[in-house]
Amino acid sequence: MEYLSLLLQNHYTLIIVSIGAALLGTVSGALGTYAVLRRQSLLGDAISHAALPGIAIAFMLTGTKTHLILIIGAAIAGWLGSLVILSIVRLTRIKYDSALALVLSTFFGFGLVLHTFIQRTGNANQAGLDKFLFGQAATMLKSDVLTIGILGGVALVLMLIFWKELKLLIFDEGFAASIGFPIRSLDFLLTSLLVIAIVIGLQAVGAVLMSAMLVAPAVAARQWTNRLSLMVIIAAAIGAFSGVIGTIISSVTTRIPTGPTIILCTTVIVGFSIVFAPNRGLLLNRIRQKKNRRIFKLATQKTVLGERIQ
């Protein structure tokens, strides 16, 4: 009997964590599509690393580890980081990738310093901040899942509301500006949505791996479709699926952390998609090429024969 209730308790945790991971995967998969199509895959990496000092400062200021408060700290810092990148690019001659690397390492370094400082001061409450580095999905609580659901839901709804504007922004910014859409504000909106998608996943997946959650599902989804709406849906589905599978795998084998397992699941799907997808996949392309070559060869042989007969 005791065993049974223990099992149930374990399952309860597993279900909570699975739901959380599925929500995270959905949100980061859907919004990651925009980052990938905008060729801003690395921006996600910069934001997630830049968010780290925000978590430390939020903790130092409030002394609590409430998920929502740490998330808000992370969001402000991550958002500030992307703002600094954009300003550097706009105001100086430093190129985008250099600005990105600069901000990523500076913010991340600062975050590490703050974390070490917090640990040295021996605050009894400090334990657990380091999970934001590598992620610890298994410790997700019901309240955490709720936070993820609400924030992620808001981000997805905003994405749907401004669907046509964001699509035009990414496809043809100049044309969007010429017909009067405020590019800066739309850019701000898109960056903010990415920041939300990233910070809600930091606790579970960690700053180091979060950008993979964003980018990988979109890369895989692109292989299967030529439509933006389908790409968003497929990426979200891949994200959710990997989230659940990763959580289950890491829960049956106690030693494997959840975040990296989720990422590995996504990576497998990416690899499969790159090789086996019907139109863009390597394998079918190769087969098609071979088949075409054979057909053309046959056709030319036939005409040669035909000419001879005549």
């Binding site: 199509l37 060729r39 046509k164 504007e165 699509k167 035009l168 990414i170 496809f171 043809d172 044309f175 969007a176 017909i179 009067g180 859409f181 692109r222 479709t225 030529n226 439509r227 933006l228 389908l230 790409m231």
Partner: peptide
Amino acid sequence: VDWDFPTNVLDVVMMGRYG
């Protein structure tokens, strides 16, 4: 523009009405 963007001809033309 990036012509590998996942969309089709009709969709691009309709962007002319977005304004």
